[in-house]
Amino acid sequence: MSAWQQLLDGPLVALTITVACFEFGAIIYRRSGHRPWLHPTFCGAGAVAAVLWLLDIDYHDYNAGVEILSLLLGTVTVALAVPLYRQLALIRQVALPVLIATLGGATFAVLTAAGLACLFGASEQTLLSLLPKSISTPIAIGVSQELGGLVELTTGTVMLTAVVGISTAPLLYRWCGIRDPRVQGFALGVAAHAMGTARAFEAGPVAGAFASLGLCLTGIVTAVLLPSLAGLFL
């Protein structure tokens, strides 16, 4: 086994590539004047893909190397309780609208996904994989398995949804005159899960807290309701 192969087997190279590419993405993002579609996450991901291709590293080996980062994503989820706690007074005032909007938004996300997938001739397995697209990856994987979908396809669609959500939300909000940070954050959390929440925190603490709220409630509502709802239609 070559020294290079030995180095590749550990997580060190994968982590270094990820952080280096992310920094590269952050520089491009800053130079571009913070254009949403040049977000460091996407620029960084594009750069990582290019580096993996150039160095001939298998994606699955890379993914195993950066597993520590997905573990930390769970820690971040726990940490979301802190901004949520700080905005609790503000959230309590609007508890009923939040609950209704969660149920409405989560149901709408699933129904439009089902409708559009049927319209574009998706197979049943693809359809099932696409239904949980609006919820955060760990919940979506669980739901997809429950439904009988393809986990890789679900993960990919969940990420694509977030990419679309966070790159279009600023424009969409400007066109539709949506200025309330509570509404901006909440819709991002419901429609674009954890990445939408990260984006909302860049806008401010109120948007961030409402996004965390939208993210958690949508995740729970979808995880509980979707498997039983899907059973009714299939």
């Binding site: 996407f42 997905s70 971040v76 890789e152 993960t155 961030g208």
Partner: peptide, 22 residues
């Protein structure tokens, strides 16, 4: 918490790479 929340975009980079390979 502040440190972790500020690192969220980095943590989302690997799953985005997965999307490209999909």
């Amino acid at each position: 918490t502040e440190w972790l929340l500020g690192r969220m975009p980095l943590l989302f980079t690997p799953p985005s790479v997965g999307l490209i390979f999909l």
